[in-house]
Design a protein around this nucleic acid. Structure first.
Length: 913
RNA sequence: GGGCGAUUAGCUCAGCGGUAGAGCGCCUGCCUUACAAGCAGGAUGCCAUAGGUUCAAAUCCUAUAUCGCCCACCA
């Protein structure tokens, strides 16, 4: 039965093949994990993409890498679970929705919380569908039956449980904190929403008179004069000799006429400015820390909209920037303005509001993570748990844990997990976040539980109001490795797949996410949540710049998928990866939308496709199983060479994959498939297949079938779709099954033959030399020639004899003579040397004597230079004494060979003249 | 200011102790019944600079320069 060619057009079409198998995998549940099945577990959770917008190139990269690992592990027989999901991303979703509201001329405060959340959920539904279909297009082997969302019912239960447990352990508390406040949007913003801009400002130097002696003053400098209204101290360095006498005395604060102390704190840099710093604990993070150290009062002078409050008297009601001017004028008028300098400094701006943010004192919820951090540090330094790949990221992780600070977990937003704390209402007052409040509250898993608790403590008539704030998104993300497995319930998944085997993510979220997961997990589950952390770098644009929305230099992965197919994009991204954690640059032409590197990968796919087409055309419809294994005794030289290459590469690929060498594995297979299999083996086997009835042809078919199937399995982790298609066409499995479920090829040491590979290399070089002579003589491709190979080396003789038919065929030599000694000397001969083999091509009337002469001379010069180098080395006694014997021996042998080559070339040259 | 990467062919990058490799691009021939998204052949490199270790350095060490990232940011 002949192969139906219509199944394989001469160009590979990923757009037909890829959706077909994505659907097949889904329908067959190929990636659905079963905890009851055998096999060592290999488990991962997908870093959940935000439910905002589309997948970008970073996602394509950071998700393809672990997919390669996962597919490898699955084929190795592990019981694999890879859990997909999405993240609710409080801030990002708020940003999107509030932008929509703004277009309608509203703010979220014009809506009820319920109305806002309804909008948020519908946005989420739409966005999640979009993202899921894009993840599917990447061909990721995720278990979709276990899809989670960080705000779904089960995860909400995990979050509430975690909060209550941490609270009950005394690790969650309320406290004062300076948040980044955006006066324009009247909300707190996170650090990542703060955009540092360099601005040309001024540094104002104010004189602060001493209380007991107004004639003397200290000079303090500030970039924000209005904050002086909230000053509660002036600080100097404790060792600063200039101010020793002042420490402990008081300043009479101008305008406010308030007495504030002069304190000593090592934070102050004596060499900067006057060495005196005004301290405004309620409006500056550093001052806040100093204020706490010295128990200074914290005076908030601002309203939520950035105007001055009653503490800002006499400027109450003025905008902060208007007040700034007034205050500067006041100091100037009172001869207390020492000087004004132009000053360039960075000012934090709100991404959302586009105005400078204010550090703003408020009551927030905190998590004391210091104990967890210590546990994680000990695990990392003592047991390398988790193990970072590459290892250098471990330092980033431990460095952050070492200087850990309390984690502010409350956010003044609506979309997210609402904090499970209820305030006891006394005078029907809502909780006031701007002052230290002594308001009573209870923390509980539900409102009913909260009331039960409150009634017990405060009597039956008690009324409760839930804290309106939500938790930092990273709080739920921090539970992701175990909340997705059903925690806190003792589920089968949790028992089987926790802790995870691998966490694969970008370096940018080691702090935000990886450390939060290890800390939360260490406390709540008593375990580090994953064994290995594989850190990937960035995908940079064609100029090496980081892709970002603001720069607008992103490259849309969907465009590249549409143009080249999924396998091509996957392969192009992974092939670039060296070791791990290295950034990659993606070639891209912004005008045409072409990407040279993805195109090269697409061409590689097409090459595989056509090689498979050739094999299938020659197998007569038989599968590898039907053809059976070749009789070892029937294997010919090329067969043995191909099998050796296949097995030695298999070994190298497995070694690479075992140490996360994903790019190296990709490159090894490229060369095996394109160079060894296509350029050499298929070409060598063609003459045998022209006589299909012979046993030589049958052996070739058996080897071709076996090698092709093995290649698909080897390559499958990188290019899952095309390998599935070819494998199905080739093996025609009777039942629905996927290549993803086949065992990964194992290398058989008995088939690996280095000396065969080496001597076959001589054959290849000889063929190349003959082809080169043909090309230089400008012979027509069809022109038949006679070739003479001369060598006295017995090993050379024997390999050439064995490969005679190959050489003759691939060089179109009508006659090929292999001799030890040249009998007759033809007149006009093109010549070259391979090792100790002399290659001669009699070409009466066709040889350009002058050109050949020049070429031979050039070769001789090159060899002489090499001989000189080796001779210098060998005549150095230190080298001969100290270098390993085999290195010395190989140098000697090399020199001998080069001398022979030189001799042959010189003879040839002399005969030419 | 502290830390981490990178610097190899025109471009993008491998190699990481025994004197250089790939893909793309370029040049020359080819539509050779698997593939022109291809085949054959070819040209191209003081491996950033300066020291050091070593018999031997693109490869290890130390500085320097340039580029890039992260963290902390002096009122």
């Amino acid at each position: 039965m002949a192969f139906d060619l219509s199944l394989m057009p001469s160009q590979y079409n990923p757009f037909e093949v890829e959706p077909k198998w994505q659907q097949f995998w889904q329908e067959q549940g190929v990636y659905t994990a079963d905890p009851d099945q055998p096999g060592d577990p290999f488990s991962m959770v997908l870093p959940p993409p935000n439910v905002t917008g589309n997948l970008h190139m970073g996602h394509a990269f950071t998700y393809t890498l672990p997919d390669v690992v996962t597919r490898y592990k699955r084929m190795q027989g592990y019981n694999v679970l890879w859990v997909p999901g999405t993240d609710h991303a409080s801030i990002a979703v708020h940003t999107v929705l509030e932008k929509q509201l703004k277009a309608e001329g509203k703010t979220r405060f014009d809506l009820s919380r319920e109305e806002f959340l309804t909008r948020a959920w519908s946005w989420k539904a739409q966005s999640q569908n979009n993202i899921i279909s894009q993840l599917r297009r990447l061909g990721l082997s995720l278990d979709w039956t276990r899809l989670r969302f960080t705000m779904d019912e089960g995860l909400n239960r995990s979050v509430i449980e975690a909060f209550v447990r941490l609270y009950e352990a005394g690790l969650i508390y309320r406290g004062e904190y300076l948040v980044n406040w955006c006066p324009a949007s009247r909300s707190a913003v996170s650090d990542i929403e703060v955009d540092d801009r360099e601005v040309q400002g001024s540094l104002w130097h104010f004189r602060y008179p001493l209380a007991e002696d107004p004639a003397h003053y200290l000079v303090v400098a500030t970039t924000r004069p209005e904050t002086m209204l909230g000053d509660t101290a002036v600080a100097v360095h404790p060792d600063d000799l200039r101010y020793q006498a002042w420490i402990g005395k008081s300043i009479r604060l101008p305008i406010k006429d308030r007495l504030i102390p002069i304190i000593a704190d090592a934070y102050v840099d004596p060499s900067f400015g006057s060495g005196c710093v005004k301290i405004t604990p309620a409006h500056d993070p550093n001052d806040f820390e100093i204020g706490k150290r010295h128990q200074l009062p914290m005076i908030n002078i601002l309203n939520e909209d950035g105007s001055l409050n009653e503490n800002g008297d006499p400027f109450t009601g003025l905008d902060r920037f208007v007040a700034r001017q007034k205050i500067v004028e006041w100091f100037a008028d009172h001869h207390l303005l020492d000087k004004v300098e132009p000053y360039t400094h960075t000012v934090p701006y709100s991404d959302r509001g586009g105005v400078p943010i204010e550090p703003y004192l408020s009551i927030q919820w905190f998590c004391d993570v210091s104990g967890m951090a210590q546990t994680c540090l000990a695990a990392e330094t003592e047991q390398q748990s988790p193990r970072f790949v590459p290892e250098r990221w471990s330092k980033v992780y431990t460095g952050w844990l070492e200087k850990i600070r309390p984690w502010c977990i409350s956010r003044q937003l609506w979309w997210g997990h609402q904090i499970p704390a209820w305030y006891v209402l006394d005078a029907a007052a809502s909780p006031d976040k701007t002052r230290t409040d002594a308001q009573a509250f209870v923390v509980a898993r539900s409102e009913a539980e909260a009331y039960a608790q409150a009634r017990q403590q405060y009597g039956e008539a008690v009324q409760l109001q839930r804290d309106p704030d939500v938790l930092d998104t990273w709080f739920s993300s921090g539970l992701w490795p175990f909340s997705t497995l059903g925690w806190p319930d003792p589920t089968a998944d949790f028992a089987r797949y926790y802790p995870n085997t691998l966490m694969s993510t970008g370096f940018d979220i080691i702090f935000f996410w990886v450390a939060r997961m290890t800390m939360m997990a260490s406390h709540l589950t008593g375990q580090i949540p994953f064994q290995d952390v594989y850190i990937n770098g960035l995908v940079r644009d064609e100029n090496g710049a980081k892709m970002s929305k603001t720069k607008g230099n992103g490259i849309d992965p969907l465009d590249l998928l549409d143009r080249y197919g999924t396998d091509a994009l996957r392969y192009a991204l992974v092939k670039e990866v060296v070791g791990a954690g290295q950034d990659i640059r993606l070639a891209y032409d912004r005008k045409t939308g072409n990407s040279a590197s993805v195109e090269a990968a697409r061409n590689f796919a097409n090459k595989i496709w056509n090689a498979s087409r050739f094999v299938l055309l020659n197998l007569g419809g038989q599968t590898p199983a039907q053809l059976g294994s070749p009789d070892p005794g029937a294997l010919e030289l090329a067969d043995r060479w191909m099998l050796s290459r296949l097995h030695s590469t298999t070994q190298a690929v497995r070694q690479a994959l075992d140490s996360y060498g994903l790019g190296e594995g990709a490159r090894l297979l490229y060369s095996l498939i394109w160079d060894d299999f296509c350029d050499w083996y298929i070409e060598l086997v063609k003459p045998r297949l022209r006589q299909p009835e012979t046993s030589s042809a049958q052996t070739a078919r058996q080897v071709l079938a076996f090698v092709l199937e093995t290649l698909q399995q080897l390559l499958h982790p990188w290019m899952p779709h095309i390998t599935e298609e070819i494998w199905q066409l080739l093996t025609q499995p009777p039942q629905a099954t996927s290549i993803a479920q086949q065992p990964y090829p194992t290398a058989q040491g008995s088939q690996i033959n280095p000396s065969l590979e080496q001597s076959f290399g001589v054959v290849i070089e000889t063929i190349r030399a003959i082809r080169n002579l043909r090309a230089e003589a400008n012979l027509n491709p069809g022109q038949k020639i006679t070739t003479i190979l001369q060598t006295q080396d017995p090993a050379g003789q024997s390999i050439l004899q064995e490969a005679q038919a190959y050489i003759q065929d691939l060089t179109k030599s009508e006659t090929l003579r292999i001799v030890e000694i040249l009998d007759s000397e033809p007149k006009q001969v093109a010549a070259a040397v391979v090792g100790t083999i002399q290659v001669l091509m009699p070409l009466a009337g066709l040889v350009d004597i002058a050109a050949l002469q020049a070429k031979l001379s050039k070769d001789i010069h090159k060899i002489e230079a090499e001989i000189e180098g080796i001779t210098a080395r060998l005549s150095n006694p230190n080298f001969v004494d100290k270098a390993p014997a085999e290195v010395v021996a190989s140098n000697r042998q090399q020199r001998q060979e080069l001398e022979q080559q030189k001799q042959i070339l010189s003879q040839r040259l002399s005969k030419l003249i």
